[in-house]
Write a protein that binds this DNA or RNA. Structure first.
Lengths: 120, 120
DNA sequence: AATAATACTGACGTTTTTGTCACTATAAAC
DNA sequence: GTTTATAGTGACAAAAACGTCAGTATTATT
């Protein structure tokens, strides 16, 4: 039942999953690549203006390392690199969708609650 | 379109969602409470032996604060506190399920890949 | 009066994550 | 030969997350 990955042991596939997609910006990156693909680094930066480039690159490297995304370097000048979801990466769509859906619900919940608060 | 929550601004409900459920152990805690509910602190610790108590409590507080879980204190000695998913918390079930499912897939993917590597 | 069980909190240090800044490489265009 | 564009890297600082340890509170039991 145990899963060994990158010198760590996971006891459930959920824990394994979280170790791969749990990074701060990873769901956001995957979301971008589900909207549009392939994307260049500069495109992703436009989608995610709050992430600094250094961080973005680090998260992209980790995703590439885990085979969630592919990175295609074109030998041109100026450089051109395209990122795309891999087959296994594309399977994350239900995860992203369910998070978005819940977020919508939570947002409604917050609005209802703030209404109640202002009534009292 | 913008959402204000806890002195922060979110531009999508996905980002709002991630700010609430993105903590290191939060999905794990929610998973526990989906398996069985209510749970006492000591029960959750049995489910999640790798999380230290301090951390667990911190994550529980945050979830309570965000109204994802409810905390019910019984006035008995020794103390008894029960944690339960709220209505909005229960709606996270699809998120947890999709993560588990993807984890299963990713695990298979890793196994296939390690087979290929050993063949070469 | 000491012990035991449960559910904590405070203080503090370590580790990890994240951010900033300066820098590199490339070839084409000017 | 300087500028331009893209996609980076290295070194370091700052902030956040996390962990450890010791301590608190309660009352019933011994």
């Amino acid at each position: 039942m145990e899963i060994e990955y990158k010198e760590k042991t996971f006891f459930t596939s959920k824990d394994l999953a979280l170790s791969v997609i749990g990074g701060r910006w990873k769901i956001a990156i995957i979301w971008c690549l589900l909207q549009q693909s392939p994307l260049r680094l500069s495109d992703i930066q436009k989608y995610l203006p709050d992430v600094n480039q250094r961080m973005l690159i680090r998260q992209l490297r980790e995703l590439e390392d885990d085979k969630i995304i592919t990175r295609c370097v074109y030998p041109v000048v100026p450089p051109k690199v395209e990122y795309e979801l891999s087959e296994i990466g594309l399977l994350l769509e239900p995860v992203v969708t369910s998070i978005c859906d819940w977020g919508d619900n939570f947002r409604l919940f917050l609005e209802e609650n703030s209404d109640e608060a202002s009534v009292e």
